[in-house]
């Protein structure tokens, strides 16, 4: 029972961090209908930039975070303007493939710049683990979770109340109508990419702080897919719930099954769950079946 509670609670914390990364995907999908396969690489780049600022320039984290946010926003906006802008109106397959190509470029660049070796962050948070009754929570995980939740909350508030958030929601709902209401839809696309990149790279910093950073960190980005399929592609709340579910499933599978398979089940479990869901509900758990017209 102890182990069970322990697994569930650390799964919950990891899930909160996943939710932030999934948010980076959902923000882009919601406004532009683009499946961004490079979310994981945005995350990895964010983590590396933060690492460089901390280690090479020896800046304080309070300077580092805003700088990473600026860099990520620039990266996201640049990608949208230089690549995705040209893909408007292209078939879905091509757009998916462009983002896959992008992820390959970012992965290669990161390895050329920072090398393939594993780097760990200088300590950000107090090292003392958090103890709740019989449950012991790693401090990096706990503070990372708190940070992720704060960022998610900020995004939710921006989306709900700020002018730019309302404009983004309008664009997501109906591009033509938003356009005729005087919203610059193309700018909204750029902003969504910037926001998506920010969310992903902040997630990357948190993940990097827990487990270190290397170019393949972006593979964690693949976990977005089980999360968004669970939570619905375009729902922010769905992404948060999906994140928690995936975090918990993963931890339980890792804790109970990994010993039998010599590792690996932990990362695989969400995808098995995902396949089951798709077999039963082809549009995901909360996805809506579109009414198709002829």
């Amino acid at each position: 029972m102890d182990i069970f509670l322990q697994l569930i609670s650390s799964g919950f914390l990891v899930g909160g961090i996943y939710a932030l990364i999934a948010l980076g995907f959902v923000l882009i999908y919601k406004a532009t209908n683009i499946i961004n396969f490079a979310t994981g690489e945005f995350m990895m780049i964010g983590a590396y930039i933060f690492y460089s600022l901390m280690v090479y320039l020896e800046l304080s984290p309070f300077v580092g975070f805003p700088l990473v946010i600026v860099c990520a926003a620039l990266l996201g906006a640049l990608v949208e303007r230089l690549i995705l802008r040209h893909m408007l109106g292209q078939p879905n397959i091509s757009i998916i493939m462009v983002t896959i190509g992008l992820s390959s470029i970012l992965l290669g660049l990161a390895e050329m710049i920072w090398g393939s070796s594993f780097r760990s962050f200088p300590p950000l948070f107090p090292r003392k683990p958090i103890i709740l009754g019989e449950i012991v929570l790693r401090s990096n995980l706990f503070y990372g979770f708190v940070m992720a939740m704060v960022v998610v909350a900020v995004f939710l508030i921006v989306f709900k109340y700020a002018k730019v958030g309302v404009a983004m929601r309008a664009t997501a709902n109906d591009q033509v109508a938003a356009f005729s209401m005087g919203i610059n839809v193309k700018t909204m696309f750029t902003i969504s990419w910037a926001f998506g990149a920010i969310a992903a790279s902040l997630g990357g910093i948190i993940i990097g702080n827990i487990g270190g950073v290397q170019p393949t960190l972006g593979h964690i980005g693949l976990k977005i897919f089980p999360i968004v399929i669970l939570g619905g592609l375009d729902s922010i709340i769905g992404a948060v719930i999906g994140g928690f579910i995936v975090g918990i499933v993963e931890n339980l599978a890792g804790g109970y099954l990994d010993p039998y398979f010599y590792g690996g089940v932990k990362d695989l479990a969400p995808f098995i769950v995902l396949l089951f869901i798709l077999f039963i509900k082809p549009y995901g758990l909360f996805g809506t079946k579109e009414i198709e017209r002829l």
Binding site: I83, H86, M87, Q90, S94, M97, V98, I100, G101, L102, S103, S104, I105, L106, L107, G108, L109, A110, E111, M112, S116, P215
Partner: peptide, 16 residues
């Protein structure tokens, strides 16, 4: 990594 970058660039350049 160079192969990675070039694969990615080829995909993107050709699609665009």
């Amino acid at each position: 990594p160079l192969q990675q970058v070039i694969f990615g660039l080829l995909i993107v350049i050709f699609l665009v």
